[in-house]
Design a binder for these strands. Structure first.
Length: 419
RNA sequence: GGAGGGGUAGUCAAGAGGUCCAAGACAACGGUUUGCUAAACCGUCGAGGGGUGCAUAGCUCCUCCGCGGGUUCGAAUCCCGCCCCCUCCGCCA
């Protein structure tokens, strides 16, 4: 959520920057609603001041045993008028809130304008695997080695609910365990959150109301299946005023993630590439506005360190404005190369949401004792998303004899060197 | 799911139609005193929003006592609905 006062003061400046993500952005209705709301607010407040005054006098007169019937009549009319105005004020506030909730964050100055093709590859790290003819894609490898069973996953839940079996199941769990411990060692506070979230929580995350189609909803209980731990962890300190000395707060959580992925199927995204359920170790930080871009660099470095520990080839991509999630001001993706698909796929998305989510969830901090509270900046980074990582490992680490050579760090966790 | 108890500011807590513009304590902050630390004493001390200001300064107004409605000239206080926490019972891995 953007700050209505910034919008009020510099509507054209904000609109220009928003148009780099969506050329359709038009703030006129929003600004009209804001005017209307402010006018109503002033009127209501003036009447309430009069009513408070009058009501107090009623009390005083009654105490003195005087008649107050003229005042009572006036106050009665006043209250009726206030009631009507308040109703209109409520409606205007609600409509303004709906408009505000739809607007995306303003991109950071370093974010290039444009869509997917305007993303900038900042760096490429590690050795790119070869394109030897014996290489297979992870679907083939998974079934050859008895690691994945998509047919039976579908039997249980439907298409695109992957199932890991045997050493495949152990590999998935080992990756989660390794990444979780890795980040705890690097100073993140471990969290094991609920895997479902309330409507309010997803609103703060900015998943709702605009992206309701992407999440699984359990209507009967008014709960949603977790789409990403970002949505959960941003609610960890909802409504709080944090102590400035405690910042930054850094958390690491493991969760399964559920996404409907409505209308996003493609033949090239079969197997583990795009699924309804995957596992993710998520990093999340609350910090000050001054620190947040340094903090983003650290999150990226921490996410990267997992890929380095696994010995993976990857690239670092700065997303362009139209490719940003609604809440993000700046996002850097880490993409691993999948030889079987011949292209790179995102395994981590590292974003600074600045005060966008903090404003939605009223998450603030006090810079120094006695100072006014200010909104924190929230950041998130996958550290990393598996399913895709498993696909990448299988395709990158396959050997000519068909076996998969495990990275050193995973071997103690599976008890074998090769799958 | 059932019964009972509870939710008031950073924490604890009083308050039961007008004196609440929310007591008091603790914590915190500033100061006085003081070999040092501590104690004592004095003072400051919730949040959001509107108006007026160059102002994140003053002044002023409105709102907030778990959330949402209602009654009333007037609600922390009365009524209705909901949420959360605690204790017990039931069901359950």
């Amino acid at each position: 959520m953007l700050d209505i006062r910034t919008l009020r003061e510099d509507p054209e400046g904000v609109a220009d920057r928003l148009r780099t993500r969506d050329p359709e952005v038009d703030l006129t209705t929003l600004l009209e609603l804001d005017d209307e709301r402010l006018a109503l607010l002033r009127e209501v407040e003036a009447l309430k001041a009069r009513r408070n005054e009058g009501s107090q006098e009623v009390g005083e007169r009654k105490k003195r045993g005087e008649d107050a019937s003229d005042l009572l009549a006036e106050m009665g009319d006043l209250s009726t008028a206030i009631g009507d105005l308040e109703k209109r004020l409520r409606e205007a506030t609600e409509r303004l809130g709906e408009w505000l909730a739809e607007l995306p964050n303003v991109p950071h100055a370093s974010v290039p304008s444009g869509g997917k093709d305007e993303g900038v590859v900042l760096r490429t790290e590690g050795d790119r695997p070869g394109d030897e003819p014996w290489r297979k894609n992870h679907l083939q490898i998974g079934s050859d080695r008895g690691l994945l069973d998509f047919a039976r996953g579908a039997q249980i839940a439907g298409a695109r609910f992957p199932m890991y079996v045997g050493l495949g199941a152990r590999l998935e769990m080992a990756l989660i365990q390794f990444m979780f411990a890795h980040h705890v060692e690097r100073g993140y506070t471990p969290v094991w959150p609920p895997f479902v979230a309330s409507r309010e929580s997803l609103f703060v995350a900015s998943q709702l109301p605009k992206f309701a189609d992407d999440v699984y909803q359990m209507e009967r209980d008014e709960l949603y299946l977790n789409p990403t731990a970002e949505s959960l962890l941003v609610n960890l300190h909802r409504g709080e005023i944090l102590d400035g000395d405690d910042l930054p707060l850094r958390y690491v959580a493991y969760t399964p993630c559920f996404r409907r992925e409505a209308g996003s199927y493609g033949e090239e995204e079969r197997g583990l590439i795009r699924v309804h359920q995957f596992n993710k170790v998520e990093l999340f930080a609350y910090t000050t506005p001054d620190d947040s871009y340094d903090c983003l660099e650290r999150l990226i470095a921490d996410a990267e360190s997992v890929l380095q520990a696994l010995g993976m080839h990857y690239r670092v991509v700065l997303l362009a404005s139209a490719d940003l999630a609604q809440q993000a001001a700046k996002t850097i993706d880490l993409e691993v190369f999948l030889p079987g698909q011949g292209r790179y796929y995102e395994v981590s998305s590292c974003s600074n949401c600045e005060a966008f989510q903090a404003r939605r969830g009223s998450i603030r901090y006090r810079p120094r004792p006695k100072e006014k509270p200010a909104f924190v900046h929230t950041l998130n980074a996958s550290g990393l998303a598996t399913s895709r990582l498993v696909a990448a490992l299988l395709e990158n680490n396959q050997q000519e004899d068909g076996s998969i050579l495990l990275p050193e760090v995973l071997r103690p966790l599976l008890g074998v060197d090769v799958l």
